[in-house]
Design a protein around this nucleic acid. Structure first.
Lengths: 339, 339
DNA sequence: CTGTTAGCGCTTTCAA
DNA sequence: TTGAAAGCGCTAACAG
């Protein structure tokens, strides 16, 4: 009585030797047939590809990577995936990467900071490049240079020499604040983002500066963490502090939406009693319940730019670090009285 | 005059031989020191690790994978990333995977169907397992078996033997429909999802069946594609077709929110004039502007189950296919008159 | 406990 | 245009 257990690994892993044998060529011809630039007779390639198809052969990316020293992997280091503009961004990104033959190795982070063990994994996989949507320390950025790994920051900058693609917070906030002032708003509050985030501080500074320059300094400032509930809470705090307010400038759309709901809860009409503006242009900003006045980030273009920039660095390691700053699109919406 | 161009690759890639030399041990001792189960004298390991740290050495995952035949990679095949419950899910997923030493190789898809070239890449990278949040054909599922690659479906099922983790649409819809009926609703419309999606058909069937069984067949059905705008449009179509309606059952929250906004646009009060229920329990469902009555998927538990199941298959290839069905949580909300 | 040795599956000279 | 041969950086027997 023999056991019934069917043998594991009956189907031995198929290598290029199997294909070579079946096609009646050498193993190196198989290799050549699979590379676009491989020098092979057309007939040979056809025969090899046919044999490969019959066998269900796929080249082993690990063996390839080991010898060519190209992994065809790009690390995506993503903080706080809850931001509603990220899903769109991520899909776009993996799409653009795969168009260039690259796969996305995804790392998500709880916080904005990047733990060491994440970078350790990045090094182990010898990624060809990395895109960070998270805050890297200067040392960490230098580590990328040390590892000859091109890096591009998305909506972040650094004083280290590193490429970055951002949406212009300063001009965006300026448009918003100027519009509010021009429409006669005078007592303006701000719901700021986190202190440890680049856009957080930049958007706050921009709004503050613009208000001050106009001679109508900010009436009150509250901080949120970019989510809906924090926007709601921040609005209440703001009203409690300032007593009355004409308008509120929010560091992102989600908090702006929270602020609108809080204002309505307090019996305020938006925009009649209170104007609210956001930033980002997420999907929900368009909903008829909010029709948010905001700055829409040109996500597609920014992602394209990020990927192009990364590839420039991959193909030319001496390519100088560059910053690309995209202007956001003003979305009039209906949540603010703006001329 | 020598050129100033600093030599590329000055910093030759560091291998375990470099570490071995520096630590004064053999190369295999370096290898052992880096594996948790490696048999080495404590002192040796300390010396090796110190040398490695000084040199900035990290084991090459490709060389490791080539020889061990374990890539430590899990493919995540994700359709339609726009669904608002996915960001939460994705972050959760990569997190749980990395706790088990696995990295996420992310593939995003435009449609619900999975193109061949995506699977081709999955094979090339010899992933240790895969999680599909996308519709695979029976043949494609068989291909995973042929490649000895464990697979778990998330919120999808198949008649092929494959593991899956789902939220119970049938009992969820039943709770919703029963609640509506018990509260006296009689003319009930449905906004269904796409026909090619598993939850789409299942939720529709469940709601239809429950209504029919109760003796109050559906008043009207419209289809949407799960996004906000399609929910809005579907509600208008529904009202045009049915004339008047007590309640609308929507296949997901985003469409339910669109439906609420459309109803309000038509001057209907929710829930006084029209009850609206959704499904999923996304973040926006909680917003005070909507307070959606819905079924919340236990995303965290579902993700945990998915990852556990995947690892059971990875560690025991003979582990039988299993379906795990999680009950969603009824969220009373305020968008429906339910006892 | 440690070193030696033989590959993992592929790319890439180098000759033929 | 093709094949032979030498590794890429590592793991895993196998002796010692």
């Amino acid at each position: 009585m023999t056991s019934n257990r069917k043998p594991r690994q009956a189907r031995r892993t198929i290598t290029c030797y199997d294909v070579a044998q079946r096609a009646g060529v050498s193993q190196s011809s198989v290799s050549r047939s699979f590379r676009a630039d491989g020098v092979v007779a057309r007939a040979t390639r056809v025969r090899v590809l046919a044999a490969a198809a019959e066998l269900g052969y796929q080249p082993n990316a690990f063996a390839q990577g080991l010898i060519t020293k190209r992994s065809n992997l790009v690390a995506i280091i993503l903080a706080k995936i809850t931001n509603l503009t990220y899903p769109e961004m991520l899909a776009n990104l993996t799409d653009k990467l795969s168009q260039r033959g690259m796969r996305a190795l995804l790392f998500t982070l709880d916080s904005n900071a990047v733990p060491t063990d994440v970078l350790e994994q990045v090094w182990r996989f010898r990624v060809d490049g990395a895109i960070a949507i998270a805050q890297l320390t200067p040392d960490q950025i230098d580590a990328f240079a040390d590892h000859d790994t091109p890096l591009v920051l998305y909506n972040r900058i650094s004083d280290r020499p590193v490429g970055s693609v951002c949406c212009d917070s300063i001009r965006g906030e300026a448009m918003l604040v100027d519009g509010l002032l021009a429409a006669g708003h005078r007592r303006i509050g701000i719901i700021a983002g986190l202190e440890d985030s680049h856009v957080g501080t930049e958007r706050l500074e921009a709004a503050l500066g613009r208000l001050k320059a106009a001679g109508y300094p900010v009436a009150a400032v509250a901080r949120g963490n970019y989510d809906y509930a924090s926007g709601r809470d921040a609005l209440r705090a703001l009203m409690a502090e300032a007593g009355t307010l004409d308008a509120v400038v929010c560091a992102n759309d989600l908090m702006a939406i929270g602020a609108i709901d809080a204002a309505r809860d307090m019996g305020l009409r938006v925009p009649d009693d209170l104007s609210v503006v956001g930033f980002d242009g997420v999907g929900a900003a368009d909903w008829t319940g909010y029709r948010l006045t905001t700055i829409r980030q040109p996500v597609e273009h920014m992602v394209s730019a990020t990927v192009s920039m990364l590839f420039e660095h991959i193909s030319d390691p001496d390519h100088p670090a560059e910053r690309r700053l995209f202007m956001g699109e003003f979305v009039r919406g209906g949540s603010a009285r703006i001329a």
